Amino acid sequence: MFATRVYHYRDPAAVILGLKELRKQGLTPRGLLFVALDPRGETYIAVPEDLEAVSTIKVGDKLSLVPPWEGRYFHFDAVHRLPGDSVLWNGDRRLGDTGSAPEVACAISEWLKGSSAKNVFLGCTAHVPGSWWAVDYLSAVVHLHSLGYLDCVVTTTGILARKIDDRRLFHLDWQSLREHGSPTEGWQDVFTSEMGNILLVERRVLQYRLVLTCERGLVEIDVSHLPDLVIESARVPMRSGFGVVGRIDGGAFAVTAGTIEPWGLTNMSPAMLVGSPTESLLDLPKTLRAMPLE
């Protein structure tokens, strides 16, 4: 889609300095395409070669990209700066083995703060998912996936997450997070899928809508009434292994393909943009059938 440039930083301190320098050159969160760590904990960041093109990049565009490197790299999916400046990040579960992931996530969060942004969404890669939370890089890290929670999504009211091998969607409101001091307690189930286990949660809420990829199809929910109510707004029966990871505001869905397992959608491919501004989730199967998919 466009040429990329890769920056390599040997430690988190270098990441902080590097991101500050890239901001001076015009980089914004839109232009942060991939962030990955290698087994030594060193950081690799991919950005557009032409930073002037950053303003045209959308989340759906990022999700359709292929990483500009090959080998053993552990990718971040998203980093969120939460109220109170604690940090939530999703990504490859092996990030937890590198030792430097919390510092890198917190460095990105601080950089987001300097850009007046609350989150950054990154490219789509195949991995076993993990989710983590920390107050800062010096504090203890909560491994949310060890508690069963995955694919954490931030809303105006709190955090949404699916649970491994479960049909329910859970919500942790900001007040509970403040009261408990960490996201280990206070989760409430707010929605139960009638399409089997929830395998994948769309990475961000858009216009109060969120798509859940389930064992037997896709479910779109309306989260505008959280924490009291979640309403199913559309249902698309499918058993083909397609999943929705995101969408472009007023545009297409970012659709990945993978293997359906009871605990999640595995072996996911980079997303493809499917549909048009006039199409809804209900139109997605017809559009997919009409595409020359390999």
Rank of each mutant, 00 (worst) to 15 (best):
V66C: 09
V66E: 14
P67V: 02
P67H: 04
W69K: 05
E70Y: 00
G71W: 00
G71Q: 07
R72C: 07
R72D: 15
R72S: 14
R72P: 10
R72V: 15
Y73D: 07
Y73P: 07
F74L: 14
F74C: 10
F74R: 13
H75Y: 15
H75A: 13
F76Q: 00
F76R: 00
F76P: 01
F76H: 01
D77R: 12
D77T: 13
V79K: 04
V79Y: 03
V79R: 06
H80K: 04
H80P: 15
H80Q: 13
H80S: 14
R81C: 12
R81S: 14
R81A: 14
P83N: 12
P83D: 13
P83T: 14
P83M: 12
G84Q: 06
G84C: 03
G84F: 03
D85I: 04
D85G: 06
V87Y: 10
L88K: 04
W89T: 12
N90Q: 11
N90K: 08
D92L: 05
D92S: 12
D92H: 08
D92N: 15
D92V: 01
R93K: 13
R93A: 08
R94V: 14
R94W: 03
R94Y: 04
L95M: 10
L95S: 09
L95K: 10
L95C: 10
G96D: 13
G96C: 07
D97V: 03
D97S: 09
D97R: 09
T98R: 02
T98C: 10
T98H: 02
G99A: 08
G99K: 06
S100C: 08
S100D: 06
A101M: 00
A101L: 00
P102I: 07
E103A: 15
E103M: 02
E103V: 01
E103H: 13
V104A: 05
V104H: 06
V104T: 06
A105L: 07
A105M: 07
A105I: 07
A105Y: 05
C106H: 11
A107E: 09
A107S: 15
A107I: 07
A107W: 09
I108Q: 09
I108G: 08
I108R: 07
E110H: 04
E110I: 01
E110P: 03
W111R: 09
W111Y: 11
L112S: 05
L112C: 04
K113A: 07
K113M: 02
K113P: 00
G114C: 05
S116W: 10
S116C: 06
S116G: 04
A117C: 03
K118P: 03
N119W: 03
N119R: 12
N119E: 15
N119Y: 04
V120H: 13
F121W: 10
F121A: 08
L122F: 06
G123F: 07
G123T: 02
T125D: 02
A126L: 00
H127M: 01
H127G: 08
